[in-house]
């Protein structure tokens, strides 16, 4: 299983800080498609972090990986 985390407007849209989904063997792009579909959110311009490091769309997820969708940041 995988923990998937949402922040900022994505968390507001999903209504949860995180959900549990099995994404083992899926690519980041596939994970985005699955979560977009499940929660009706647009993840096209969103970065993805796997285990707290930025990941590419082609990276493959393993069991237990923590996935976080990172909207364009606005700190500073």
């Amino acid at each position: 299983m995988n923990k998937v985390m949402f922040f900022a407007h994505l968390r507001d849209a999903v209504g949860e800080e995180s959900v549990s989904v099995d994404l083992t063997g899926k690519t980041v792009a596939e994970a985005k498609a699955i979560l977009s579909e499940q929660h009706g959110i647009n993840l096209e311009t969103v970065m993805t972090a796997v285990n707290e490091e930025f990941a590419g769309d082609d990276d493959v997820l393993s069991d237990g990986d923590v996935v976080a969708f990172i909207p364009p940041v606005s700190g500073g």
Binding site: F7, P71, S74
Partner: peptide, 26 residues
Amino acid sequence: IVPIWKKEHWEDGEEWIGNQLETVAY
């Protein structure tokens, strides 16, 4: 690169900055 977000609150509403305008695309 630092995952921090700000939500601005105005008299007539609120919005997470860096989202809907999608001025930054990846």
